[in-house]
């Protein structure tokens, strides 16, 4: 029973990692850049959503209408998509053609910059995202006691959103003409441009989609945790990156799969680590290692199978 509960919790967090990981995987697929600032884009999505809701319904609002919540979150996510495009235009585009090290260092600089600009705008304290009444508290399905398995509107809605966005992405990438151009660009940008594909448009779309999904993921993680601050992007960004690598960087279904695996293992770690006896001292292994799950998986996968679970090519195209 407890096992099922942990697993379900892990699934719920995992799909959010997956949503965020899509941003990494798409950008890497197209321009071979680890967009280090993606975690900060997710954080901005959560911050802007919180701000919009605060403006619209008052900072002290206890319950907010569901429609308003959806509208303002969508608005914030669209804006965040714009931030993503802007990030590429300002920081990465001028470096196309220079060394990959320069691009990666720039991405790290952007991450540092955005994180600390967020502190200057929103402060270093904890923020919360207000949700409609009962959104996270009313159980639709409850098995077992107070701490048993419970599924709320929040869980249903993130599952629905995930399924919808995955189907939408599948359709965009596999079935449309533009999606074909995106795939072609990922494989060979020079040849794609010789076919008349506008690389700028492909790259901008990639950043928009990744940032949009990242914003929703960021908002959901923030709701899940109850409160969040400017540093939320660093951790979820790294875990989501681990998920992208685990699934096979460049593969969208892989990112989701990787996110789910990491989410579940993390939840198991939180649940069971303390029951594993520590080899040297009395008591169990510290649950503090929960946060190490993502990194450990990341290192193991890079060592054992750098192309990831669903990746086709070797880890590196260049």
């Amino acid at each position: 029973m407890l096992f099922l509960e942990y697993t379900l919790n892990g699934l719920n967090t995992g799909i959010l990692y997956g949503l965020i990981a899509i941003g990494y995987t798409m950008v890497y697929g197209i321009i071979q850049l680890i967009n280090f600032a993606h975690g900060e884009i997710c954080m901005l999505g959560a911050m802007v959503t919180a701000t919009f809701l605060g403006w619209a319904f008052g900072v002290d609002a206890i319950a907010i209408p569901a429609a308003g919540f959806v509208v303002f979150m969508t608005l914030a996510a669209l804006m965040d998509g714009g931030f993503g495009i802007l990030l590429d235009k300002i920081a990465y585009k001028p470096l196309r053609g220079s060394s990959r090290l320069s691009a990666l260092i720039t991405a790290i600089g952007m991450s540092l910059l955005l994180q600390n600009l967020a502190v200057m705008i929103w402060g270093a304290g904890a923020n919360t995202i207000k949700v409609p009444e009962g959104y996270t508290s009313t159980a639709i399905l409850q098995i077992g006691g107070r701490l048993g398995i419970r599924i709320t509107f929040f869980h249903i809605s993130i599952w629905l959103f995930t399924i919808a966005s995955m189907s939408g992405l599948y359709f965009l990438v596999q079935k449309t003409r533009f999606g074909m151009a995106m795939r072609a660009t990922a494989q060979n940008p020079t040849a794609a441009s010789l076919m008349g594909v506008r690389l700028d448009k492909v790259v901008a779309t990639t950043f928009f989609v990744g940032s949009f999904l990242g914003a929703i993921g960021g908002v959901a993680v923030a709701i899940n945790k109850g409160s969040f601050d400017y540093q939320i992007g660093l951790y979820i960004g790294l875990v989501a990156f681990a998920a992208a690598v685990l699934g096979g960087i460049g593969s969208i279904p892989g990112a989701m799969l990787g996110g789910i695996i990491i989410g579940v293992v993390e939840a198991w770690a939180a649940g069971y680590l303390s029951e594993i006896p520590h080899p040297l001292v009395e008591g169990g292994i510290s649950t503090g290692y929960k946060e190490a799950v993502g990194f450990t998986v990341l290192i193991l996968i890079i060592l054992l199978r750098p192309q990831g679970l669903l990746g086709s090519r070797g880890g590196d195209r260049a």
């Binding site: 071979q32 790294l238 190490a292 590196d316 260049a318």
Partner: peptide, 25 residues
């Protein structure tokens, strides 16, 4: 042996694990 990007991420992940070990042990 891997590409430089991967090395960067491995070292980053390792530093975080090192931090957690130091904090928890």
């Amino acid at each position: 042996k891997l590409s430089g990007d991967y090395f960067a991420i491995v070292t980053l992940g390792f530093a975080q694990i090192f931090y957690l070990v130091v904090k928890n042990e």
